[in-house]
Nucleic acid binder design. Structure first.
Lengths: 340, 340
DNA sequence: AGCAGTGCTTTGAACGATCAAATTGATCGA
DNA sequence: TCGATCAATTTGATCGTTCAAAGCACTGCT
């Protein structure tokens, strides 16, 4: 910076102003300084800025144990977030933790070591200790996931699971399906119940019964296959399966295939999350708009971190409920067939 | 830090010494300072240390486009790396790039903004511009992946793919298989050829022919399934398939299942990478020891970053070729059957 | 007594940036 | 002509830490 100042015959502060408050500098001077900056490739050192301003431009995000919180989705989210953050001059810092308490301890460490600007949390659930801890410490954060059942609210971004499953179910109904089953998770999962509700809503709106068409199982391929088999062997077998996840849907897909039936022609199957496995076997799936999620997260953080967002006034609280979209593949009717 | 110094009635420098060079401080004094540190929970600010020492304790790693370089594996690697780095007081910083040139530009940005300690590269290939660029800039780095065909060497860690496939093939031979096929990638992939070589070695050692038992295809489930079908329909069908990846293996698994055959009983299938999909369907697979890889990466970096590793003397160059291990599931003979 | 050596601790400067306040030079109305 | 106002720029202090050099007791040797 001293070099730039000398070359442009101005003081250090003027160089700083050209970068951080260009309106304070006369156009002529500014251009001269900018030319030198461009010529030398000067970029301010984050460490020095951080020391002075208490801003690191770092955002910490957890990287979960592989296999937890559906690794592939989190991975895609991390990617989208990293890309989007980069565009706003932020960077993503990783950390690990096996449970919420360890995660809180990780927050504490990160905050005292690095001078973090914010956190992005994933996998929120009811009575989430993490959000209350962060709120108490007045640390800016956004969650990917609604504050399920929690009273205190905070900026969040989420994907409307109910809307996704409703769309999936309506897609099947439009193609003539009348006996549509739902393969869901056990009770107690906020996300799971939300997705189930979408299926119910669509069925009820079309006057289709849901009784006896709901199976609850762990997020496991084998259990999905088994549940699918059970329903297919029942007195009144469904012609379509809407599933709470791709894992479960792939189980159903496997069972259908193993019976010599063709998914999409004989029995329809729809999953959730649009995993690579779904794409590989041609499974129709509800895709989360992760780029939009990442975008909304950073917009919320920008608002939180920009001056004016003091702890006193919490202006427009950012909440974004985004709509997923259906990726139609061979395991469900193609849109053209919607002639019924 | 000033608070600690005052409470312990010592100077700032002594507090610093207690933390960074305890041997310089008298035991009595040290204990007094340590007590105050413990009581106040003081931790030095990274930003200030970085400014002074030019060390950020930050390691940058790419997070690839989802679907590239087999996302799930990279994700698991990132997790292992994050955990291991945390243990050594380092943190992982993410960045994205779509190709090598953009990646190099990202290096440049990261280096001038943050004061990075090192990079960890993945997916090395022959004539890799990234490694030469980093070497030229004298930036410390380790690669997960051998410097395929490159003359200049640098610290690297890799998994012995040939050893993995050899082990897989020997496992099948020990169980009595004599007609073992290999589903591999097209020529030109260093990793692919390495894995193929393992299968060849095992076959040759056992006097089994490999001619006509090799299929080359893209890393795609459908192509894996197709190649499997072609071989099964040939005049001399194989009884077992060793595959270059889980994706391909799952294709073969699907084809076997669709024919009403039972994987592991009628036809054996073995994949590579031990993905969650493999675990879900019970596919035997070669697992990369990612914890060990992460460990070796950090050991190498520690050596690179510790004093004494000046650019002049490059003491013991770190290279680690780690052995993967076979995770035996239902799609291949169980070890007990090894009675033949 | 004087001087070098050793062990422990303190002092002053520096890392690279920004903030707050001071300075300079115009412009302008009274 | 003089002070007031305003825009553009500079000066001095500061963020929290570590480095380099110095200071201060002792000890031991001559």
């Amino acid at each position: 910076m001293a070099d730039v100042a000398r070359s442009a015959s101005v003081s250090l502060q003027t160089v700083s102003n050209v970068i951080n408050a260009p309106h304070l500098v006369r156009a002529e001077t500014r251009e001269r300084v900018e030319a030198v900056i461009a010529a030398t490739g000067y970029r301010p050192l984050k460490a020095a800025q951080t020391l002075r301003t208490q801003r690191s431009h770092l955002i910490a995000v957890i990287i979960p144990e592989p296999g937890q919180w559906k690794g592939e989705l989190h991975n895609a989210f991390l990617h989208a977030l990293t890309r989007r953050a980069q565009k706003s001059g932020y960077r993503i810092l990783l950390f690990t933790a096996v449970d919420d308490d360890e995660e809180i301890r990780a927050y504490d460490q990160l905050l005292s070591d690095y001078t973090l600007d914010a956190f992005v949390l994933t996998g929120t659930h009811s009575a989430d200790r993490r959000t209350s801890w962060l709120r108490r410490k007045r640390v800016p954060f956004v969650t990917f996931g609604r504050p399920w059942g929690t009273a205190g609210t905070h900026p969040w971004v989420d994907v409307d699971g109910a809307h996704g499953e409703r769309t999936a179910t309506e897609h099947l109904i439009a193609a003539g399906h009348r006996r549509i089953a739902f393969l869901g998770w056990p009770e107690g999962s906020d996300v799971g119940e939300d997705r189930k509700a979408g299926w119910e809503q669509a069925c009820q709106a079309a006057g289709l019964p849901t009784g006896g068409r709901l199976a609850r199982l762990e997020d496991d391929l084998a259990q999905g296959r088994e549940a699918c088999a059970r329903l297919l062997d029942s007195a009144d077998p469904p012609t379509a399966f809407v599933c709470v996840s791709d894992t479960v849907a792939l189980g159903a897909w496997t069972e259908v295939t193993a019976r010599g039936l063709v998914p999409g022609r004989d029995v329809a199957v729809i999953g959730f999350d649009d995993s690579t496995a779904a794409a590989a076997v041609g499974l129709t799936s509800v895709a989360q708009p992760l780029d939009e999620v990442a975008d909304a997260c950073l917009v919320a953080l920008d608002r939180l971190l920009s001056p004016g967002a003091g702890p006193g006034k919490r202006a427009a609280r950012a909440r974004a409920l985004l709509e997923p979209h259906l990726v139609i593949r061979s395991s469900s009717p193609s849109p053209e067939k919607r002639t019924s």
